[in-house]
Design a protein around this nucleic acid. Sequence first.
DNA 1: TGTATGCCCGTCTTCCTCAT
DNA 2: ATGAGGAAGACGGGCATACA
Length: 537
Amino acid sequence: METSQLLCTPCVTTPLSAPEPAPEQANCVSSNLSVVGEFQQELAKRKLSTMEPSDSSDSGDYEGDSEPSQTSNLGENPCSRANKASERAEDPSTIEDTPATSRPSSPPTARSKLKCSRARTTLSSKPPVRYPSIAVVIPSTSWKQGPARTSTRAAAAVCKKRLRSGRGTGDHQDENTPNDTEQPCQKRKKRRPSIRPLSDPLKSSVPISSHRSGAIQRLHGSAILTVESNTGLKPAYFFTFVPDPSPMLPPVHTEVIPPLKHTYTSDENALLVRLKEKEAMSWSEITTHFPGRNMSSLQVHYSTKLRHKAGSRLTRDASAPQHLPEQEKECIEMNPELNKLKIECNTFRHELIAEYHQSTKARKADPTPYDQYRRLQDQVRAKRKKLHMDAKDKMYDNFFEHVGNRIIDQNYQGIPVEFEPNTSHIQPERKVLADLEFKNRDVDTVDDAELVEDRIRSLELRLELHQRNIPKPLRKRVKFEATTKKPDQPPFMMKSSTESNIVFTMPSSFLPYFLTVGNRAVQDGRRSSSPIQFGAA
DNA sequence: TGTATGCCCGTCTTCCTCAT
DNA sequence: ATGAGGAAGACGGGCATACA
């Protein structure tokens, strides 16, 4: 095992010494995430203060841990478990007295990650305010890296990147940029997940075997805390620990691992999008920035995973701009390439008219120039269409880039995220229908007449909507004949709340549509006999 | 799978013809 | 002169296809 990855619930304890993160830590992952998850951490802190020691709600998160020493105390808080483990192995002569920056060459002592966090906090000379310490249980070597974890980490990495870029402090720092001179626990270099399976635990680079022998080693490495907030209310915390090669550890990391380009990291995704969209590089140029990947792989990955991100997000956010503003359309009309095509097309059209007096007469007289004219028209339309699509993509990207920052900023400032969907494009009948059908009431306490009345009104609204927007397949088949006259045998009559009778002639082709919308009255009528009788009270 | 292109369809506007 | 109705054209959007 080359990387030890840990899943950790937000196990927050009140730190003994909790200095405020230094300003230079603003770029690091844990710094940002500790700020973003502030509310959840506060809640967890309060919860922890009132939590009974037998609370075992978090024990299920430590899956795949077959180590008896870690699974025996199921009723114990993982934080306390880690704390106890660290306390057992704590050597009072090593940590607090030694600056972290001078310790990389020191022999790794037995410490949990909690101690690593504490050790980092000792670097700051500022007075302590609050800083969550993270308790982590390192899994045994039997913990295998599966595809699900890979995907989860990928999602978390995307979230992490968004969080980091969303702070808007110009900290778009390359993760490969060396900045690890002070914080051994905040090494930012994110290593690409290796797909190589753990074939031989004995050859693992992580000295977990020390657990079994009772001696706990202290591990130096990279710590990445990510928050996956796209699952809804409760964010999921992912803690990834990547041990560093140490002179005291078996030198397994010394060999050069061949790049197994199976998964794209968030950095690669960001770079690919930037080169393609911002810098408009050709694919051959882009390929030079991705050694080990071929052009087709990059194209496919970009097209399938990256390009339509904005569009897919658009479907989840009705407040996103739906159409280009008129001003933007006017700007597109000023595009020189489009104007050139338009002039060319118009010139050809004038020539046709000058010769045949009418373009259609030219089509009858000689189809060849007219077809050429049509092709020119198509070119103009295609160019305009492409410019509109590009402008829309740009607009979407701009919108989602800022809406993400806004949400993160609101989280940071403790402002509840409010969602105000743009409902201007929703038909009024649809709104009334939604209000009518989602009253969320107990039918046992509502009078039958009221229910029937609502049902009639619902049918009216559905008919109004249907007349407004008839489904295309039915448009040629359905003939609405709404009349104020009462026919001899009305096939379908409704009495509305406005006391006006509405009579509809309902052809048989109308039934499938009503069936699809779940109209029980129509279904009942269909089951009983034809024509449909609406059983109003 | 993305992109370019062509084709088709629906909608709207403009122009022309004809009846009043 | 004016309004109604039809024809023609412009335009946008969707779909299919070929190609890379």
